[in-house]
Design a protein around this nucleic acid. Structure first.
Lengths: 225, 225
DNA sequence: ATGTGAATTTGAACACGTTCAACTCTCAGC
DNA sequence: GCTGAGAGTTGAACGTGTTCAAATTCACAT
């Protein structure tokens, strides 16, 4: 089960060629339709070799996931360094998620369900995928902290986590979205990001103080699982 | 792919014995660890016979799901006929969900991920599972309509759907909950159900009117996928 | 050159979910 | 009793993800 790290130049090349074959095939035919034998074939290695570097087919998806995350991070860098308005930053960031993932829309369903499986090594609430999750959380922390919005400390503390969960919800909606140009998802993003920023600003209302404290306490409770 | 309905008494008996074997084995060893061969063995039929009545292993999970839904409906009937307070009804209903599912906690993870797969026939947003989903929605409609709470019509219209989604969220949390007696989940249920009822009552505040309209419009938009 | 040992590669083998053509059973109509 | 058609049943066979013991490669020390 240990993830094998290549220890020679030859090993590095093998790992790379297997990974590239897998990413290409996932994109071309989807996750389930891509067989480990097909990956090995295209990579020009034997079936067993793939398992030397990737303990399972799911671990290849984890790399796929990391790949899209990096595309996403690159895509939003200009926006984050230019723009200061929180709603704009958030909208741009989440829009960029679905735009980045668009080439994989057809295959996203099976990948999502793999990721959602609590016993999968890919599950974002589990251990293996932790480094990647932390990167995404950091990204949303940057979205918030780089804005000129003044967020109460107690809210800011959990906002990245909430936004990350929100992004997953958007992705799940996007998977089902068959509208042309995925316009429905983009509309939902525009509406929800605005709504989120608005609700944050409302959280200071006296009448909402009680609920706010309870919600934050709840989140803290949930996180400490 | 068509779901075969038994047409003789013999067929009915076979279907029943296969289903019972599957439910028992799922409960004993979990979904993935239960093989179709083991199900056929325990049922005393051949491997092929199982496929005559259930087109896939996943379809057996659908029956499993239906089974727990019926247990749940029976469990909350007394509460719903006795109690009128919305928070109490809601809390009791959602508590009953996790209590009903407790015997299956160990296997719930893989079942959940199967259900979450958009291309699975079990996906609640898809077609095959629609009758069962509608039953659950009706159940939450009863929880609301049988209470003495006065809910604005626009909110009441979508409340069952929202509560159903909320229930799925609770179940996902429960899957990860390893606290003794699953106490953490029960606490989260108590807190969130109270919060939901409180937020509904706050929705009439003038300052929240705008957000309320937008949220409801959003939900309407999403539902019309 | 040669030997050594770790890294890498191989493909046969396993258990699984699923398919399907062939088989058996049942019983209404004669 | 016989027949035929439809319902039910069977298990071999396929393609899949995964495992593993054996074979191969190769940098380095001798």
């Amino acid at each position: 089960m240990a993830i094998e790290v290549p220890k020679t130049r030859r090993g590095e090349a093998s790992r790379a060629v297997i990974l590239k074959a897998a990413l290409d095939l996932f994109q071309e035919h989807g996750y389930e339709a891509t067989t480990m034998r097909a990956i090995a074939d295209r990579a020009g290695v034997s079936l067993g070799s793939s398992y030397h570097y990737f303990p399972s087919k799911e671990h290849l998806v984890l790399e796929f996931y990391r790949h899209t995350h990096e595309l996403h991070a690159v895509a939003i860098a200009p926006l984050l360094s230019r723009e200061r308005d929180l709603a704009t930053r958030l909208r741009g960031t989440v829009r960029a998620v679905v735009i980045t993932c668009e080439p994989f829309h057809a295959v996203a369903g099976s990948i999502f369900s793999t990721v959602a499986n609590p016993s999968s090594p890919l599950n974002p609430f589990g251990g293996t995928a932790r480094p990647l999750r932390d990167e995404v959380l950091q990204l949303y922390a940057d979205v918030v902290s780089g804005s000129d919005a003044r967020i109460p400390r107690d809210i800011a503390e959990f906002l990245p986590l909430v936004l990350w969960l929100y992004q997953m919800g958007i992705l799940y909606f996007w998977i089902f979205d068959s509208s042309p140009g995925r316009l429905r998802t983009l509309e939902v993003i525009d509406e929800t990001t605005d709504l989120i920023v608005r609700l944050i600003s409302l959280a200071n209302l006296p009448v909402l103080r009680g609920s706010r404290k309870r919600i934050l306490g709840l989140i803290k409770d949930i996180v400490e699982s």
